[in-house]
Design a binder for these strands. Structure first.
Lengths: 217, 217
DNA sequence: AATTTATCGATATAAAAGTATCGAATAAGA
DNA sequence: TCTTATTCGATACTTTTATATCGATAAATT
């Protein structure tokens, strides 16, 4: 099997976002050239990325917008929705519960869990919040295999372990903690810190550089 | 000037997180070997990454934990705090306002803005929320140069433009929209979609593969 | 109908990132 | 004091990812 470059996978949603915008604007066709111009990704790269999803384009006109959207969605498995549990219904957790977009990306949060007894029994955006003691039972019964981890750092590893013990094989990790998991378990980190690190360093570099330029006048 | 690989920048916060944990546990020294074991990053890679921050280690004992922490923090400019504005105080916006960790990463949200008049005048975690009409004035007066973008997709580009028009040079973009900005403006995307794409595809691949294996028995 | 132009997709080259190897340095133990 | 084990840091190598080149194709134009 051909292994898909991670970076390609990460670019696909960006194309998808644009394509859906084009579709709303009524554009029936889009060329790789166009996508490249807007995203800043190199044309050849866009072509390679799209090629992996299996679509073929037509010279002079490009790709059918609708077809391309379908191809990307099905490639990412965003067409049929997967059920998942969310653990940690604090600020970030509630934000995700309220995030409508997720359903458009094939993810349906069917229940949330939190240690705080005050939250237990409440509902956020139609999703019910349970105490952690209910997790094991529900998780096994509903055959959930995706878990969203939005607990405080200190509970990250233990919570991840609980998920794994109850059959979860893919963890979407929003904590800055590196999770130690058995082979075969998929962990995907949403690394806000990583992103902030890039921003901070770039900005410091930029400001420092500008100061130097000013001084040299 | 030596340009820092983006991926190195992204790994640094991960090391930092671990190092701070080690420090709490009272470990005065950490070796690259140790960091590599835990993070899963190759030893040589860890060494290269650390080398870029300018620290030097001692054979047989490794690096001084405290020194390494300081080196990474100062390299990322996380020691002195930068003021920033947040626009879009919805679910995700409020989550960020309530996210204490940010201050430990050199980011201080000094004000938030939202179109919803109901939010105007309220306070989340000590941060006051204003109407968007106040943005221009406050932004210029306080010389803010970092903006956090947490508005709905359809307002992303326009809001970004407003930020730039008022002196913001670095945008931390939480929307899935690709922002079109003038040269020199730094955009850093927290790509939840990208991350979800990797998760979805990996999981689909894994499940598909397991099904095949089962069938072959 | 012939020509031009925009785009595709394949192949080849270049750059970047990751991995392996090796000598040097230093603490700990013989 | 000498040897051994561990870790560092530099250099060389490999793999991955990105960019460039080029012929082929199909719509638009002459």
């Amino acid at each position: 099997m051909v292994s898909i470059p991670v970076l390609t996978l990460k670019r696909l949603p960006q194309y998808l976002e644009l394509l859906q915008q084009f579709q709303r604007e009524g554009q029936s066709h889009v060329s790789a050239t166009r996508l490249a111009e807007i995203t800043g990704v190199h044309v050849t790269q866009v072509r390679k990325d799209l090629a992996l999803t299996g679509v073929v384009g037509v010279p002079k006109v490009g790709h059918k917008t609708a077809e391309l959207i379908e191809a990307i969605k099905s490639f990412l498995n965003w067409n049929d929705s997967s059920s998942c549990f969310l653990v940690g219904a604090g600020h970030l957790g509630s934000a995700l519960l309220g995030y409508q977009e997720l359903s458009r990306k094939g993810l349906s949060i069917v229940a949330a869990f939190d240690t705080d007894p005050a939250l237990s029994g409440t509902t956020v955006n139609g999703v019910k919040i349970y105490g952690l003691d209910r997790f094991a039972n529900l998780c096994r019964r509903l055959h959930i295999n995706i878990g969203i981890l939005t607990v405080p750092s200190e509970h990250a590893q233990a919570t991840a372990q609980m998920m794994i013990d109850n059959g979860i094989v893919a963890i979407w990790n929003f904590t800055p903690v590196h999770l130690d998991v058995p082979e075969g378990v998929i962990v995907e980190n949403v690394d806000m810190s990583a992103s902030l690190a890039v921003l901070s360093h770039r900005l410091a570099e930029k400001l420092h550089h500008e100061t130097k330029v000013e001084r040299s006048h």
